[in-house]
């Protein structure tokens, strides 16, 4: 209970600060509506509008992009990590594209996948896959040498060592990669929903609300997107704790 006190107080403080800013007329009420209005608009968006559907579409796209990224990034990363020389060869390319803003790739992916769902999911999957791949490869490369030797002396073959030791050794780092990957996928999906011919999704809703001066709703959608990112991160932290029980011990 006590662990919750501080964050709750912080959140209340933030809303109070917002309210004070409205009272002091820091900005035009059209740009900065009172928190109560933002909440009621958001509530209406869920109750009678399309906000629930938009949230669900964003979750779907992020989830799909993340699954594709994981299916490619984890096996490829583990395989490259097990062949350190090979990984050093492609490291530059991975680092380069990992550092490239995914939004700069939209035009290229539009040519490849067309202006539909494909592009949004493909760009997000591409960005997330590189992060996951990079973490999985480093997890394998940094596996404790002693454990590998121990497995070898107990008669484990190369493939056996990969399955019995290296993947387990890399698992904490792989999950860190997946956590960063899903956050990145969400960021890219929301941006893609704003600009690549969308009719739904949180990104579409937020830019629409802005253009129609529905600023209460706009703030609401921003908070929904924030909550989504926060919950995804939290879910992964819990999964890490549960499945990598030995980490750091």
């Amino acid at each position: 209970m006590r662990a919750l006190t501080a964050p709750v107080l912080g959140a209340i403080g933030f809303v109070l600060l917002w309210q004070v800013a409205v009272w002091l007329r820091v900005a035009d009420p059209i740009l900065l509506p009172p928190p109560a209005e933002a909440f009621s608009e958001t509530w209406r968006g869920f109750a009678s509008g399309t906000l629930a559907h938009d949230t669900w579409r964003t979750v779907q796209r992020t989830g799909l992009a993340f699954l594709i990224a994981t299916a490619i990034g984890v096996p490829l990363g583990v395989a490259l990590g097990a062949q350190e020389k090979l990984y050093r060869g492609v490291e530059f390319i991975v680092d380069f594209f990992r550092s490239t803003p995914a939004s700069a790739l939209f035009p290229l992916f539009l040519i490849l996948f067309g202006p539909g769902e494909g592009t949004k999911i493909a760009v997000a999957a591409f960005g997330a896959a590189l992060v996951i791949l990079f973490n999985a490869a480093y997890g394998v490369i940094n596996a404790r040498r002693t454990r590998v030797l121990a497995a070898r002396i107990m008669g484990a073959s190369g493939p056996r060592i990969l399955v019995d030791v290296l993947i387990w050794e890399a698992l904490p780092q792989i999950l860190v990669g997946m956590r960063s990957g899903i956050s990145l996928a969400l960021v890219i999906v929301v941006v893609a929903e704003m600009f690549i011919g969308s009719t739904d999704g949180l990104g579409h809703r937020v830019i629409n609300a802005q253009m129609l001066f529905e600023s209460g709703l706009m703030y609401g959608v921003i908070f929904v997107a924030g909550a989504l990112g926060y919950l995804l991160n939290l879910a992964f932290l819990l999964i890490e704790k549960r499945f990598v029980h030995w980490s750091g011990r």
Partner: peptide, 16 residues
């Protein structure tokens, strides 16, 4: 058949 006991048991056992 050989057995080997490493100095650093923390890094030699499989914690999973």
């Amino acid at each position: 058949r050989v057995g080997y006991v490493f100095q650093n048991y923390r890094e030699a056992l499989f914690p999973w």
